[in-house]
Design a binder for these strands. Structure first.
Length: 892
RNA sequence: GCGGGUGUGGCGAAACUGGUAGACGCACUGGAUUUAGGUUCCAGCGCCGCAAGGCAUGGGGGUUCAAGUCCCUUCACCCGCACCA
């Protein structure tokens, strides 16, 4: 019997698939098509276990669908533009292009040994001019379609490096390289009008029934449709042009609880006030720190009273102060609000800090003023002092004590509608629908991205480049020795002539957000070499993506942008109407994690240790540094000896802390390189491991024992196949029928597991089936049929081993092309069932009965059961519940 | 701060529509085979208990003949937040 040796069989079968062209996608009118796509990788240079898991999942689907007779498209490409390439150039020299293409070559060489059923002839990289030139063409089409415009927007500005920073490059409000306090600064930038599609992107979510519910919810919340009241405050003491301050609120029912108005530091009114040095100082204070919502909303709330007053719309004698407040976002609503501290937590904190009145509008309906016990009612004004804002759900009924329309007791929703109606009747405001979704800013002041194909002309203004001049290629001769965008300081690249008037002009130096690149690559894969962005006939055949697989971290941005872009591509004639929702089904997979081994040095800083330097005691589960000792030596150490062996050179005896299930990261030293696993055990073992145990949507923890176990199992399957291969042809056994049933059950279990994205359950079924075959005593023919079926069922996960077994057991052709086994439905049903008997909900006995037995008959048998009789001990039976085929519950 | 999610043995997990909690795997324990073994095979394995039995699905409460599953409440951890990809 030969040993299971993946280093021999894996290259052999990969070569066989390649020479058979087994994975080349072809438009075959005789077959239904199936398009499987995994989110394409950023070419960092090394594949990691997360990639292995992602692509193995896609491969399992692709191979299963191919076996089931579909014409499968399963392509791979590279999301190749982005900051890391520029960072590498800055840190280590070299060129982003060379770095990126070198990484692509390295990663491809690492992916090939995995044996994925990918059509490599369709490979693309977004940094190929062949790709981004077509993206530039679409940008021009989108300009013509009115989907592109320019406006001022705020960026993170590093005042020392004189450069724009990504949010990721802002750490604790400081530039990551210079360490200087980051400022917010306005710049004119390019935008896509995704907000034109707010309503549609929201309502179309209902049709995405094969997307995870959580992703649809997150997108819906992100789009953030709201119904509210927009109205104007008449101002007192405001500069000319600001006689009215427009405000939007989703809680107009709390208007009688207003105690101030607040505007964003970016509001136009603030600009009109900046001659006041106190305002200027305050605005400068607000401009400290980054632009991210997280940073703005968690920052300490600060405000400045402008001295301007506004008149309350319901009482012109009631004036409210106008504050500038750092937590008001200019991008949402009108950039101005009225503050109702009693019923909004942020307003509450702001009012508490600055001593503004807190006036309640409504109370809970249970008779008490509020549910909370720590509330004080000031009898004179009816104002209350509470420890936090009272914010009931809008669907909850509350008692309005300062209502101005409708019934005193109603739900918030009803009161909001009544308040809008009141405003419209009395003419001081109108009901409007607003979306939280903002237009997509695509300008990046960076080199390694797709150039925006636009020219600035002194006479013609902003003009699109002529399509025959595309692609506008990035110049190669750039330097990264100073921060900033090298395109800006390139001596000649910026110089060009105006496409309209021919005069000397200047090329746009902003490049596109890399999210643009990844918003249409799925469509490009249907015709990757075309000289137009897409070819409609190909897009029509292959679109949509039937199954898209990737990380949950892309739940909002990437997927929303892609949904928008597909619509824009349809509008500009690059995609058929059926492709406006490009992903029929979406699956979001979990991360591959690994334990972190951490100690602390004398200064209290964390020190991380590589897994190979760790010894884990199998009984206690504790971790120790191995200090070059062998397992045997370590196993014989007394417990207290371990402490003495703690970090060499350190006198502090700190035990090693194990942090479980942590995201793999280089700095934490818990990265497992898939190449090492493939070298030690082969690709099939790596694939088997990442698909087993954890459900695919959840994180999976990499353990070396798990990888070894996977390898041992595959070795056992190989040994089992060899044993069956050695059986005499005329061997007869009694277990033929049982094995045939087990085979049918395995086909059913595995097929359902794969189709339901429960690969862990499919693998559990394969373990069970392997054990059954191993113990079976059946005739040679039945045994061979069972092992061939096992090979076909394993082939999506462990394709190389499956081919080897298939060949040894006399299967015709390639296992990859052998088709998917079908279960005989008659073999799937049992004629007797075992029913548990509960007494008062506790399981006390069980009986075995024919499947079709009538309930009354079952009841009789159950009551006659000796265990039941013993437990009842003569008590009268109150009730007996028989759930056919499931359970019997006797109530006494 | 806002939005979304997860929580079941020592560990990864299973449990279809409310119907036997712990399938399958790891680790561990005992035994057999082997020159030896970190190989292979057999058996055991939620917790307490000699047993009968009792207790168990992050914590607390509820609905039901029956709750991991439904409802309320609470805790812990993870993901996203528009210039990371």
């Amino acid at each position: 019997m030969s040993r299971y040796d993946p280093s021999v069989i894996e290259p052999k079968w990969q070569a066989a698939w390649e020479s058979a062209g087994a994975f080349t996608a072809r438009r075959d009118p005789a077959k239904p098509k199936y398009y499987v796509l995994e989110m394409f990788p950023y070419p960092s240079g090394r594949i990691h276990m997360g990639h292995v898991r992602n692509y193995t999942m896609g491969d399992v689907v692709a191979r299963t669908k191919a076996a089931q007779g579909f014409s499968v498209l399963h392509p791979m490409g590279w999301d190749a533009f982005g900051m890391p390439a520029e960072n590498a150039a800055m840190e280590r020299g070299g060129h982003p292009k060379d770095w990126t293409y070198g990484n692509i070559a390295d990663m491809k060489a690492q992916m090939k040994p995995l044996g994925l059923s990918i059509d490599w002839s369709r490979e693309l990289a977004t940094c190929d001019p062949e790709y981004y030139g077509q993206q530039q063409a679409m940008f021009i089409d989108m300009m013509e379609a009115g989907l592109v415009y320019r406006k001022a927007a705020v960026v993170n500005w590093d005042p020392v490096d004189m450069t724009v920073l990504a949010n990721e490059q802002v750490i604790d409000g400081k530039g990551w390289r210079s360490g200087a306090a980051v400022e917010r600064r306005e710049l004119t930038q390019w935008f896509f009008k995704i907000s034109d599609y707010s309503e549609e992107l929201l309502s179309a979510l209902d049709g995405l029934t094969n997307w995870p519910e959580k992703v649809r919810l997150m997108q819906a919340n992100w789009i953030g449709k709201s119904r509210g009241l927009q109205f104007g405050f008449d101002t007192v003491g405001a500069p000319a042009g600001f006689e009215v301050l427009e405000v939007y609120t989703t809680r107009p029912d709390t208007l009688m609880g207003a105690s101030f108005a607040a505007i964003s530091p970016d509001h136009p009114l603030v600009k009109a006030l900046e001659s006041d040095p106190r305002v200027a100082t305050f605005v400068a204070l607000c401009q400290k720190g980054g632009t991210s919502a997280e940073e703005i909303e968690t920052a300490e709330k600060i405000g400045h009273d402008t001295g301007i007053r506004v008149k309350h719309p319901l009482d012109p004698n009631w004036e409210l102060p106008v504050w500038i407040a750092n937590f008001i976002l200019m991008d949402y609503g009108t950039g101005a609000i009225f503050g109702c501290p009693a019923h909004d937590q942020r307003d509450f904190e702001f009012a508490s800090k600055y001593g503004l009145p807190i006036k309640s509008v409504f109370a809970a309906t249970d008779g008490s003023m509020f549910n909370a016990t720590d509330i004080l009612v000031r009898e004179d004004a009816g104002d209350v002092v509470l420890s936090e804002a009272f914010v009931p759900m809008k669907s909850e009924k509350v008692r309005y004590i300062r209502g101005f329309s409708g019934q005193p007791v109603q739900t918030g929703d009803e009161a909001v509608a009544a308040a809008i109606a009141h405003a419209e009747t009395h003419g001081y405001g109108k009901g409007v629908t607003k979306f939280r979704l903002r237009d997509w800013g695509v300008s990046r002041q960076r080199y390694w991205g797709c150039p925006i194909p636009v020219i600035h002309c002194a006479t013609c203004g902003v003009v699109a480049e002529k399509k025959e001049n595309l692609p506008i290629e990035l110049p190669y001769d750039v330097s990264f020795d100073v921060p900033g965008n090298p395109l800006d300081r390139h001596p000649t690249w910026r110089d060009c002539s105006c496409p309209k008037c021919g005069a000397k002009a200047r090329r746009e130096t902003d490049t596109m957000d890399t999210f643009v690149d990844s918003s249409w690559y799925y469509a490009r894969f249907t015709a990757p070499r075309a000289t137009t962005p897409t070819v409609l006939a190909d897009a029509d055949y292959w679109m949509n993506v039937d199954q898209y697989i990737g990380g949950i971290e892309h739940a909002i941005l990437h997927l929303l942008y892609s949904r928008f872009f597909a619509r824009a591509m349809h509008k500009t004639g690059h995609l058929p109407a059926k492709a406006i929702e490009p992903f029929n089904a979406l699956f979001t997979q979990g991360m591959v994690t690994h334990e972190i081994y951490k100690t602390t040095d004398a200064q209290g800083r964390p020190v991380y240790h590589l897994p190979e330097h760790i010894y884990k005691d199998p009984t206690s589960g504790k971790a120790y540094l191995r200090n070059n000792l062998s397992d045997d030596e370590l196993a014989e150490m007394p417990d207290d000896a371990f402490l003495a062996l703690q970090p060499p050179g350190s006198k502090k005896l700190t035990p090693i802390e194990i942090i479980p299930s942590a995201k793999m990261s280089k700095s934490k030293k818990n990265v497992v390189d898939p190449m090492n696993i493939i070298a030690a055990f082969g690709a099939d073992t790596a694939r088997w491991f990442v698909m087993s145990d954890s459900p695919p949507e959840r994180d999976v923890e990499w353990t070396s024992s798990g990888a070894e176990a996977a390898f041992k199992h595959l070795s056992r399957v190989w040994a089992l196949s060899s044993r069956i291969g050695d059986m005499p042809a005329d061997h007869k056994g009694e277990g033929d029928d049982a094995l045939a049933r087990a085979t049918a059950k395995a086909i059913d279990d595995v097929t359902r597991g794969i189709e339901g994205f429960a690969f862990n359950k499919a693998i559990a079924g394969l373990y069970a089936f392997t054990n059954t075959i191993g113990k079976a005593n059946a005739s040679t023919g039945v045994m061979k049929e069972a092992i061939r079926t096992l090979a076909r069922l394993m082939s999506p996960m462990t394709p190389h081993l499956a081919e080897e077994i298939w060949a040894v057991q006399g299967g015709a052709g390639l296992c990859a092309q052998a088709g998917w086994p079908k279960a005989d439905p008659q073999l799937l049903v049992d004629d007797t069932v075992t029913l548990p008997i509960q007494i008062n909900g506790k399981r006390r006995a069980e009986i075995s009965v024919p499947k079709e037995m009538a309930a009354a008959e079952v009841e009789k048998l159950a009551l006659a059961n000796e265990d039941v009789v013993r437990f009842l001990a003569g008590q009268p039976v109150k009730k007996i519940i028989v759930v056919p085929g499931r359970i019997i519950n006797v109530v006494v």
